[in-house]
Structure formats: C-alpha cells, structure tokens
Design a protein around this nucleic acid. Structure first.
Lengths: 343, 343
DNA sequence: ATTGTTTTTACAAGCGCTTGCAAAAAGGTG
DNA sequence: CACCTTTTTGCAAGCGCTTGTAAAAACAAT
C-alpha cells in the first residue's frame, strides 16, 4: 500500500547545480540551447541531470522565458471525421517540430471559443490553430492586438488579414455539380452546410455557378437546409423527396450529411445510385468503404492541417512572416454513388 | 500593415489591483474561489477585471499554485478510429469538468512515451490518461513514486496496482468465435493484434477458449500475425488464404484489420460473406456503413474514455481514491459479414 | 468609549526557470 | 609577466500568480 503523501520533491536546476558544482544559471544555459558553455562543464551538468533524473518544469520555463512550446488548437468537436482528419494532419506536422499540443473542443458551446482563445493568448500557448471556427469575430481583434500568431483552417477571412488555409470549395462544388450534369441530371438537389460558415456558402455558390454555366435554371425548392450533420441531412433529404418533382441527384455539402441523405433515400424505398445519385464533399475515410462507395469531392484535409502548422511555425519563428491565404485544390473522386438518371 | 512589435502588455493582477484600489492578493483571492472577500470589494475587482479585459495566466497560476487544471493524454496516434472514439469519450467527460487537455501522440516512436510521461509528471499536467500504452513499464515506477494520478485505458495491469479501464476482451472474443461456430464454421482463422498488448493476447485466449469448449481442435496455421493495422491484416489474410484448407471464416482482432482481410479476400475472387465470413472487433463507426456491414464485437470505446476521466477526476479530487480495474462488457453486433459456410 | 472577536485585506515569500549584466577565468601578445 | 580580449560563469531580478501570516477594519458586547 503506497503512502499517498510520499510524493518526493522533484529535482530542480538548483539540485543539478549543486550536484554538478556549478551555478544554476549555468545549468539553465546548458540545458536550453547552449551559449558559451565549456565542454567539461556541460558534461558535468549532463551527468548530474542523468543521475538525478531531472526533467525541466515546462510551466516555469514558460513563465520565465515567455515561451511555452505549446500550440493551442481550437476544434468544434471530435465527432466529425472531417475534423479528425485535419487534426491528424496537424498532429503529424507538430510531431515533427518540438512543439506540443493543447486541445480545446468547443462542442458548439456558446462563448467557449472566445474564452479559450483568451486563455491561449494569455500564455497558455505560443500560437493558435483555429479549425473551422464559427465566432472568430469575437476574438479576432484580441488576437491581432497582441499580434498573436494564429492560423485559421477552413474559414474565409474576407478582409484577408489572417492566414487562412482552406480548400477550393467553389471549384470543388462546381466540379461535382458539373459531373452530375454531364451524367444527364437536370434536377439536382442541394443540401447545404451550416450557412454561418463561409465554406458552406462557397459550396452553394459553386453549385449555382455550374447550373448557370450549363443553362440549368436554379430552383429554390431544390435547396434543403443542412448543417453538416447527418440527422439534419436526413431531414433535408426527406423534404427534397417529398417534392412533386423530386431531384434525380442530390449534392450534399459534406459526406456526413450525404450519409443522412442516403438513409432518407433508402427509407423511401429508392436505391442509390439507381434511382437517385448522391455526391458528397470531403472524402472522409468512411466514403471509400461504405456502400455504395461514395462519389465525393476530396478536400486534402490532412494536408490542410499540415500546411496550417507550417504557416504557424513560420510565423512563430518570424513574427513578420507574411499573412497568406492558402487555397488547396479539391478533387472529384468518382466512386459508385452516382449514375445517369434512370428515366 | 500592423506593426508587429505592438503587442501591448496584457493586464496582470497588479493592474487589476490598482484599478480596483485593493491589493493584488485580494484580487487573487477574489478570482480563485472566494474565501472571505467583502461583497463590495468583490464587485470592485470584478468591475476592474471586466474593464481591463483581464484573463489569468495559466502558467503562472500553475507554477504558483501547483495545479495546472490540465489533463495529459498520451495516445498512440490519431489515425485509428479506435483511438478517436476513446478520445471522443475522454473529451466529452473532460468538457464537463473544468479541466483542459494536453495531447501527446507517440506515433509508435521509440521512447516518446516515457519522455512525455516525464514532462507531464514534471508539472505539465495534473493527471495522465494513457490510451493503449505500449511501454508503460518504462515510466510506471516514476508515476507511482510521485503518486501521480493516472489511469490506463485498454491495457492490463497484471499487478493490479493501477486504475485501468478496459473492455472484456476475452469474453468478447469468445462470443465472436462462438457465433461463427454456431453458424457452422469449423475452420476459423484468427488474425492477431499487436501481441505486445495484453488486449491482443486476451482476444486470442478468448478465441482459443471458445474452440476448446466446442471441441474444435486449435490449429496453429490458422493464426496469422497482425498488428491491428490494415496493411498487415491484408498480408496475414493472404497467408491464411494460401493454406491448403483455408478457413471458412476469419476473426480479425480489430475492425481495421478486418478491412484489410476483406480486401485480401476480394482480391482472391471470393465474396464476403458468401465464401468467407469475417468478423471484427471494436465496432468503429465505419463498420456500420461499409459493405458488407461488418459483424463485430462492440467495445464501448466512448464509455471507456468517459469512465477513465471520471476515475482520474476522482483521484485528482481525492488522492487516496481507490485503485480499481474497470472492465466494461463487450457486445456482439451482428450485421452482414458472416454467414454459414457454403459447403 | 473600550475590549474582544471575527472578518477582510496587505505584505512577503516563493513556485522553477530565464536572462541581462558584471565579474572571473582563460587565452593571446608584445 | 603585465595587459588586453574573449570566453565562461555567477548573481540578481523577475515572469504572474498563490498562500501563510500578520495587521487592519468592522462589528458586537461590555
């Protein structure tokens, strides 16, 4: 039975200094990037570190040095594969640096986004990565006032004052719509994303542009409101199917809501793609293994995460690193969920 | 063009103290849980906080108070849905507390696990959650010596000195095997997990036990070495299929490797489940949407994450909170990837 | 008013580390 | 060997906060 109060004190630089017979500042200098330390001294210090099993206290380091070596990540949640993929990209790039990650999930809770951002600005991390943030305007000024390094992912900064990494949503949506048109579809339903997000708007615009370019009239009743989630995608699709002339194809603003759409279609006794075609957006891992395999627009999510980290690191190294808008290409991935209209 | 050096100093408790006309310690006491503070004083402080937009510096708080309000999480990586699900459970429970999360991914890199653990013990977080750790023995002693709060997830502590949350792997594997036997299978291949992990061993044991109970001889050539990853699952299955009497069913130690198995089977021109049945383990989200829908053993991954957090929080609140082994039930989820053997 | 209590506030010290500055040691030169 | 440089080390201060302790204020009772 361990004595619960027996947590011995951990060694500090002072202990190391004593053990090595040097001053604590020499220990500090030896440990954090050299500066002029005599080789023999360095060896003594390192030996003492090893002997005592010393590990620096990050909090103290951060407080004294003003650098935490932590990158804060603000994500909407961990339920979406879309987020997970981006996170994966972020992680892989961060892993290659000497930073670590502090993760905040807002779960769409009121105000959390701004609170977390404030905490991060106040020393909790050196930089901030915003994944599909919703309420940026609430703390963007604070970030900028402090000249705090941050990068937004999958968001549009209309004023172009932030570094933003995103995919070409407009073109992606255009390509998807065009593909359906080329298959022969004329009645194409569109399931929107969360329209508070610019990316959702861009996808809708891409859809509209493709219709216009092919002289297909835009019909308002073919637009169903979604929010990127499965359940609402299901509901929106129900509405589309209840129309007098239901669409022969449905373009869902993301893969997850496409899953909802397929559910709804099946529930109506219809088959995908035989009776109705469905196309998604994102290309989450499930898209390739589901049935039918989902035709979709691939966003390079992992790469987006990586690029964002690289930009942030560049900014961290050089505070004057230029602000840029990085837009990565999307790609139409043709699988099995689309076919020519049956009639 | 913003002047990059214009990051104004953020307000500290001293600024608040001055603004409110009280001493800094009064500010501190007002802000961190009350203690006796006069209402009128509290109001003055709060007003100053609001006016100056003060946000406490967590690092300083942590250093001075010895408490970071951070929970460290050590995960093997972000590629596995299995890990993601657990993470999701963790996150949902942490979100309900007033802790935040600092995330370390080892990506199976040598030594990282121990390094991160050491950093966490040295003040980076107040507690540690270990998700399917591989090299625990390297730092378990350190954790215990410091009486540092930690909980392991999906790991077996043979000495029962750690709090561990896991699923009933043995029984789950037993049920899966039994199900195949009841369908009529006698030649059942087994694709192992990463055998360094106890959970992988337990699943194998469950498989063996079910065979024994049903008087089916255990055949060594029906065991293919896997490591929980898709690629190796694919290879292992190739080996099984190359046997003179290939199995009529394959039990993969996890869903991801089941995907690899299915790939291999298809490549041999065989169909699932018509020619060969496949059963997995985990029940990751993709299992329900893939084709064919995967029959598998569900581990309550989200719940495992939640339980682990609950235990850790209890331990954080009360350092003498008892050490326990929590084993959650697994459940056979019958879908479409298994059928009676064809011949 | 005075004293004894209790509530409230202030001061000082310190958490473990970094870093500017000055002093000490080491190295070169004439 | 004295003197000037350059390298190396040590001291002090301070990062922003918490907290033990002591002093001040408030209040009640005498």
């Amino acid at each position: 039975m361990p004595d619960s109060s027996k947590n011995k004190k951990l060694p500090t630089i002072y202990d190391i200094a004593e053990e090595a017979g040097v001053s604590y500042s020499t220990v500090s200098r030896t440990l954090s990037g050299f500066e002029f330390v005599k080789d023999s001294t360095r060896e003594k210090v390192l030996a003492a570190v090893k002997k005592l099993g010393y590990v620096p206290n990050q909090q103290a380091r951060s407080l004294a040095g003003g650098v935490s070596n932590l990158i804060g990540i603000l994500v909407p949640g961990l339920t979406d594969d879309y987020v997970i993929q981006i996170l994966h990209g972020i992680d892989s790039a961060v892993t290659e640096s000497n930073y670590n990650v502090i993760l905040y999930t807002t779960n769409r809770r009121q105000g959390k986004e701004a609170t977390y951002a404030a905490t991060i600005i106040n020393g909790a991390a050196d930089g901030l990565l915003l994944v599909a943030p919703i309420k940026v305007e609430l703390y963007l000024d604070a970030l900028r006032e402090q000249n705090f390094p941050y990068v937004m992912i999958d968001q549009v900064d209309l004023e172009q004052r932030s570094t933003v990494v995103s995919a070409d949503n407009h073109k992606g949506a255009y390509k998807a719509t065009q593909y359906l048109i080329e298959l022969g579809h004329r009645q194409i339903g569109f399931l929107t994303g969360l329209m508070q997000l610019n990316v959702a708007i861009e996808r809708l615009e891409g859809y509209k542009a493709a219709l216009a370019d092919h002289k297909i009239p835009f019909r308002d009743e073919y637009i169903a409101q979604g929010d990127f989630r499965m359940q609402i995608g299901y509901q929106g699709t129900q509405e589309l199917l209840a129309l007098e002339h239901p669409p022969t194809a449905i373009f869902a603003s993301n893969d997850v809501s496409a899953l909802g759409a397929i559910d709804a279609i099946r529930e109506h006794g219809l088959r995908v793609p035989d009776d109705i075609s469905v196309i998604g957006f994102d290309d989450i891992p499930a898209a390739a293994v589901m049935y039918p395999k989902l035709t979709t627009v691939r966003q390079p999510l992992i790469q987006m995460g990586r690029e964002a980290v690289l930009e942030l690191l560049a900014r961290l190294k050089n505070p004057d690193h230029e602000v840029r808008q990085i837009t990565l290409a999307t790609q139409l991935v043709i699988r099995d969920s689309c076919a020519a209209p049956c009639k």
